[in-house]
């Protein structure tokens, strides 16, 4: 039971990333992004002191806030509609995401042993899972907002993986800057797109 509870954040984070990959509803995507960033915190807490483990979820919240305020400004925030039926594209992305995660899970012991023996299995599954889902999102979507979410997911996975390997304050500061700039770039794209649509 304890093991399951310890692994729970891993699965919630991956589910949130899958939701972002599948659904195209800005409000829902922002909620899923927040959940994803928060669920990265427990695995980080296992390897880093509290103050350092808080950096990533805190940055994530800032990033989501920037995106939320931008969407609010352009009138993109609407009530979440959960009854919306899945389109074929959404089904494809969902199936591809689940397939990738299942394949990763199957080969995880080998990857763990051969490449990342110092990182725990759960930590590795979450980080590589986020990297794969982020990659899939970057490769299958052309809308700037979702590309920004894809890159954030990818970077989130990578940061998690790298923090399991080594930690540096300078690197952490640079990665925080990258995340915040990425949110600003995402907002820039959202504003540009809304301006062009209005024109």
């Amino acid at each position: 039971m304890t093991e399951f509870l310890q692994s729970l954040p891993v699965y919630i984070a991956l589910l949130a990333a899958l939701l972002n990959l599948v659904r195209r509803q800005w409000s829902l995507n922002l909620v899923a992004l927040v959940v994803q960033f928060i669920c990265v915190f427990p695995p980080l807490l296992k390897i880093l002191p509290l103050q350092l483990a808080l950096i990533h979820p805190f940055t994530g919240l800032m990033v989501t806030l920037i995106l939320y305020l931008t969407l609010l400004g352009v009138g993109g925030i609407k009530a979440i509609d959960l009854r919306h039926t899945l389109t074929s594209g959404e089904l494809f992305r969902g199936a591809a995401g689940v397939f990738l995660l299942a394949t990763l899970r199957a080969f995880l012991p080998q990857i763990h042993q051969a490449v990342f023996p110092l990182v725990s299995i759960d930590h590795l599954f979450l980080s590589l899972g986020l990297i794969l889902i982020g990659l899939l999102q970057m490769g299958t979507i052309r809308e700037p907002f979702y590309l920004a979410i894809g890159i954030l997911t990818f970077l989130s996975g990578f940061e998690l993986l790298y923090s399991g390997l080594e930690f540096s304050f300078l690197l952490e500061a640079l990665l925080v800057a990258v995340n915040l700039l990425l949110a600003i770039v995402g907002s820039f794209f959202i504003i540009k797109d809304s301006e062009s649509e209005a024109a």
Binding site: L147, F189, I191
Partner: peptide
């Protein structure tokens, strides 16, 4: 990708 033009695929691919 200056303002006034929509984000095009080149800049998105460059970022990726």
């Amino acid at each position: 990708s200056p303002r006034g033009t929509p984000a095009r695929s080149g800049v998105l691919r460059f970022l990726s």
